[in-house]
Design a protein around this nucleic acid. Structure first.
Lengths: 138, 138
DNA sequence: AATATCAATGCAATGGAAGTGCAATTACTG
DNA sequence: CAGTAATTGCACTTCCATTGCATTGATATT
């Protein structure tokens, strides 16, 4: 069990107060968040800083980007076993049409997708839309 | 084999020169196009007109919208058997990381995706990224 | 410890795409 | 041919993503 500081250092990212706060914020959230969500949580910080922090995290495979079809990019922390780079490890995302939240279904791996001859698959993005467990239980 | 005019009329869409041109443009393209693509092809026409025309086509299930993860909405003509509304009929899209083109793999249906208890699946968006047949043949 | 160096942050501004209101034009109806 | 309704064009707005540059802060070197 490593600390956040150790994690950042192991990825060659300088430890700053801002980065620690943003990491903790993402860790607390169970859903994928937009930049605006982060902005609202840190009103004192500049939007650009938050943007670049998330981008840095993304480059270093600390968060992954999610395009759930809302048109707004969302971000979520990679989990322990989340090897974003490796195609076969990609999990799917679920977007609720009711509450508009997007969750990572980490344990649900994407089945192998066959593509026609000549096509080379490098990456798969799968978003299921519908009603999430919280909303369907109403 | 019905004409484009007949198709539009059967969907209760007024036949205009603009709409016929845009339909033909989409029919000629084998790939999904952005609004900017259409704009470049019809420089005389106003962007808003093109925008609203495509939206009209979309509402009447003549084109379907594709979110391939580039952040820009793309559109492609529905084919004969394309029942966009029906989940089980959804095909997948392939986005080439090299030429940046997105194609509909109409014959490749999306496999049934299982979601956890409590979640209700209404819609699935699946985009495979990699190298397309044209680019891999280089 | 002082300084040099490089990264991180904040501010301002830009660009691109999506969308809306309204007036002018065009196409259908009786 | 007149009247009505839909379509088109223009101007404008909004929202998100992104960049340039100056400033602040942190690390390394002497």
């Amino acid at each position: 069990m490593q600390t956040i500081e150790e994690l950042l250092e192991s990825k060659n990212i300088r430890v700053t107060a801002m980065r620690l706060l943003i990491y903790k914020f993402l860790a607390e959230k169970q859903i994928a968040v937009t930049l605006s969500d982060i902005e609202n949580a840190f009103e004192k910080a500049d939007r650009t800083t938050l943007y670049r922090t998330v981008k840095t995290f993304e480059e270093k495979d600390i968060v992954h980007q999610i395009d759930d079809g809302t048109g707004i990019t969302k971000y979520a922390l990679c989990e322990k076993g989340c090897n974003c780079e490796i195609e076969t490890d990609l999990h799917l995302h679920f977007h609720c049409n009711n509450c508009n939240e997007t969750v990572c279904l980490t344990e649900h791996k994407i089945p192998q997708i066959k593509v026609p001859d000549g096509f080379v698959s490098e990456n798969v993005n799968l978003v299921v839309k519908g009603i999430c467990d919280k909303c369907s239980g109403q």
